[in-house]
Every structure is written in structure tokens, then in C-alpha cells.
């Protein structure tokens, strides 16, 4: 990757102020309100270092979570939660094939995150308006409004958003809303040493992902595919595209991802219609019962 010319303006590592539009130097883009931003997580580049998890915890001041060892893999975080907004998964995909290319180790690694869904079920469910869509087209919980009803939690098709028992509010990845406002790229993407996590404008990222997918196919990784871009697994059932999307090399289920999730709000109308019809049907039954015996 070429260096941005402005990089040489900042030779000292000890800064006395924030660098204006720093994302231009670290991710090659200027962050502007009114545009759509997201993450492209290319799992073929993930080395499982968990720098993203640490950077996220540090920037967002998140408490420690799930201290202990699972024993099943190097994954001791186990799930996204109120206190873990990036989660690196470790999947042992069988014995390493010596004929394979060097990047194809026996382990699959993937840094999971909130998908910032286009028709976000958490946002659609939120009764207080605490969950809202920002000027960067991301989905964020406003902590000063959330009353901890917890309805966003079962709404999410990916098991992301969670209530913290420490403060009784819902928490999840904000796509570093505060950093975006300050012109910085999200902490996880900046920290990722292999660029497995890439931050950028959504159109550009989707384009980049398609190029990467084609490139991998050319190089013999036939199973590489995109999850969460329009028309791919994950972006199904009325959810629209996912602003945080992935490049995967095994079935979605391998990464604990639903293959064909659906938009929960689409179930409201049929359910309400059936329920109201039943109540009124039984009310008519009551009407005829009560009238008949009144006449007797």
C-alpha cells in the first residue's frame, strides 16, 4: 500500500493534537456525514491475533468479559456481548493439507462484529428510539435513552446486541461513532495488522470484496464467497445488505452465522391479522350465545 503524502507531516509519534481527517492516512478515505460506511472483514487474512478485540475494549472502555478458558479452541471470548464488540472465532478445519497454499492453515479465523444491518431488526424493535441510524448509516444505541427493555436482544438475527447487567442498558458495536465524528477510522480496523478488517465507504468496500473473491477463485480457493453483500447469504429475508460483511471460505454455519436470516418486522402484519380475527370471531360467538339465551 502506498503511503499518503500527508503521512510525512507527522513524523513524531507524540502528538499534541488529533490529526485532521486521520482516516485519510490510515484507511485512505475522508469520513463525511451522509455517506454509508462499513466493515469488510476478509477472513482469509485473519491470523487470530485479537488485536481488534483489544483495540475495541481499550477505545470503548469496555469491562473484562468471560474470564476463563473454554477448552475448545483459542476462542475464550465465545460470543459478542455487551462488553465484547469484536469476537475472534477459531475453527479447526481439519488436518492441514501439505499440498495447500501457505495461507491455508488448518484453522479458520474470523473476527465477528455487529453487521449494522440495512433494515436493522434491533433498531426496528427498539420502542424508545434509543437505537437509531447515524449520519454514517450505522446503527447505534443512545445510552441516555435506553431503558433496558431488552427487546432488541431477541430481535437481532445474529445474537449481537446484549443488555449489560452492570448498567441495565443495551450495548453493541457503534462502528466507533465517536471516532467517525472525529475523522478517525474505527479502532479495530486501524489495529488489524493484516487488513483482515477493512473500513471504508460501503460501495467501494463491496467492489473491493468482489475483486478479492474473484482473485481468490483464480488462485484456487474455489470456496471463497461473500456473506452479507446484496444477493449473498446473510443479506436475505428482507434484511437488506449488511454494512459489516465478510469474505468466508466455509459454510456460514461454520462461523456460527445464519445462512438465510429474516427480517422479524415482516411477521407483525400476518400475526396481528390472525390474532385480531380470532378475537373478533370469538366476540361474535359470544354475541350470538348471549343473544340467543336472552331471547329464551
Amino acid at each position: 500500500m502506498e503511503m499518503h503524502p500527508r503521512v510525512s507531516d507527522h513524523a513524531a509519534s507524540d502528538l499534541d493534537r488529533a490529526i485532521a481527517d486521520e482516516a485519510e492516512l490510515t484507511a485512505g478515505i475522508r469520513i463525511r456525514p451522509g455517506r454509508s460506511y462499513g466493515f469488510f472483514t476478509d477472513t482469509t487474512l485473519c491470523i487470530g491475533c485479537k488485536a481488534c478485540e483489544v483495540a475495541c475494549k481499550e477505545w470503548n472502555n469496555l469491562p473484562a468479559d468471560g474470564i476463563g478458558l473454554t477448552g475448545h479452541s483459542y476462542d475464550n471470548t465465545t460470543a459478542l456481548s455487551a462488553d465484547s464488540w469484536r469476537h475472534v472465532m477459531f475453527i479447526e478445519a481439519g488436518v492441514r493439507d501439505d499440498l495447500a497454499q501457505p495461507f491455508q492453515s488448518g484453522w479458520l479465523m474470523m473476527s465477528d462484529v455487529c453487521k449494522h444491518c440495512h433494515n436493522a431488526p434491533c433498531l426496528e424493535a427498539c420502542p424508545t428510539g434509543a437505537l437509531f441510524r447515524t449520519e454514517f448509516d450505522t446503527v447505534v444505541v443512545q445510552q441516555d435513552i435506553c431503558n433496558g427493555c431488552g427487546y432488541c436482544v431477541p430481535a437481532c438475527p445474529f445474537g449481537v446486541v446484549d443488555i449489560s447487567l452492570l448498567d441495565g442498558k443495551a450495548h453493541k458495536c457503534t462502528l466507533c461513532y465517536d471516532r467517525l465524528k472525529g475523522g478517525l477510522e474505527p479502532a479495530c480496523a486501524k489495529a488489524c495488522p493484516t487488513d483482515s478488517i477493512q473500513f471504508g465507504e460501503l460501495d467501494e468496500l463491496q467492489e473491493r470484496a468482489r475483486r478479492r473473491e474473484a482473485d481468490l477463485h483464480r488462485r484456487g480457493v474455489a470456496g471463497a464467497y461473500i456473506y452479507g453483500a446484496p444477493g449473498t447469504p446473510g443479506a436475505t429475508g428482507g434484511l437488506g445488505h449488511l454494512s459489516a460483511f465478510f469474505l468466508l471460505t466455509a459454510t456460514p454455519e461454520t462461523y456460527n452465522l445464519p445462512r438465510a436470516p429474516t427480517r422479524p418486522a415482516n411477521r407483525i402484519a400476518p400475526s396481528l391479522a390472525a390474532g385480531i380475527a380470532t378475537v373478533f370471531g370469538l366476540a361474535v360467538a359470544a354475541l350470538s350465545l348471549f343473544t340467543r339465551s336472552a331471547e329464551r
Binding site: T70, H72, S73, D75, T78, A79, M89, I91, G150, Y151, V153, P154, C156, P157, F158, G159, V160, V161, D162, I163, E213, G223, A224, Y225, I226, G231, T232, P233, T236, T251, P252, E253, T254, Y255, N256, L257, P258, R259, A260
Partner: peptide, 26 residues
């Protein structure tokens, strides 16, 4: 790759870890 070209799910899960979160209701 479109959805239909995906290999079918073999039924294996991620170490049996939950994929969803249960509602935090009492």
C-alpha cells in the same frame, strides 16, 4: 457465489455455542 451454489449445511455448529441471544426477560 450465490446462495444456491453454497454447499449444504452438514449440521455442525460452532462448538455448540449459541448463535442467538435469548430475550433477557424475566
Amino acid at each position: 457465489m450465490s446462495m444456491n451454489e453454497q454447499p449444504a449445511w452438514d449440521g455442525r455448529t460452532y462448538y455448540n455455542e449459541p448463535q442467538l441471544r435469548a430475550a433477557p426477560f424475566n
